[in-house]
Amino acid sequence: MGAGVYAERVNAAARLLEGGVPVGDAALLLSVRFGVSLRQARRYADMAAAGGRIVVPEPTVVFTVKLPAVLAARIREEARVRGTTISSLVAGALSDHLVSTGAGSPTDE
């Protein structure tokens, strides 16, 4: 299951809880709605009870580019040092660059 599906289910649980539905009842409703076990539905409800709604991540696509080997190695190392993924590092750098040059804003992406 992707992060978007997980976020949508936690947010559905949060809406139920915000409407006054008890956690146990919300889990039962989520189980039926999403066709998941009661145990899994309870996890969604518990997550929503603990932290409320969560951000639904944007869909991603594969975007292949050719880079000089030295630059690719530097990017890999920087991602390792920061404890993040190469994709996250590059997406952030490109987004920052586009915004700083006026070529786009985070909402245009």
Score class of each variant (00 low, 15 high):
Gly2Cys: 11
Ala3Tyr: 00
Gly4Ser: 04
Ala7Pro: 04
Glu8His: 06
Val10Gly: 09
Val10Tyr: 05
Ala13His: 00
Leu16Ala: 10
Leu17Ser: 06
Glu18Lys: 05
Glu18Cys: 03
Gly20Val: 11
Gly20Tyr: 07
Gly20Leu: 09
Pro22Met: 05
Pro22Ala: 03
Val23Met: 00
Gly24Ser: 12
Asp25Ala: 07
Asp25Trp: 03
Leu30Ala: 02
Leu30Arg: 00
Ser31Glu: 11
Arg33Ile: 02
Arg33His: 10
Gly35Ile: 08
Gly35Asn: 10
Ser37Asp: 08
Leu38Gln: 01
Ala41Trp: 01
Ala41His: 04
Ala41Glu: 02
Met47Leu: 11
Ala49Thr: 10
Ala50Val: 00
Ala50His: 00
Ala50Gly: 00
Gly51Arg: 06
Gly52Glu: 14
Arg53Lys: 14
Ile54Gln: 07
Val55Met: 05
Pro57Val: 13
Pro59Glu: 09
Pro59Tyr: 06
Thr60Pro: 10
Val61Met: 07
Val61Phe: 09
Val61Arg: 14
Val65Leu: 15
Lys66Arg: 06
Leu67Val: 11
Pro68Cys: 10
Pro68Phe: 07
Ala69Phe: 05
Val70Met: 10
Val70Gln: 09
Ala72Trp: 06
Ile75Lys: 05
Arg76Thr: 06
Arg76Pro: 02
Glu77Asn: 12
Arg80Ala: 11
Arg82Ile: 11
Thr84Leu: 09
Ile86Met: 13
Ser87Ile: 02
Ser88Ile: 08
Leu89Val: 02
Val90Leu: 15
Gly92Gln: 11
Gly92Leu: 07
Leu94Tyr: 14
Ser95Gln: 11
Ser95Tyr: 07
Leu98Thr: 05
Pro106Asn: 04
Thr107Gly: 05
Glu109Lys: 15
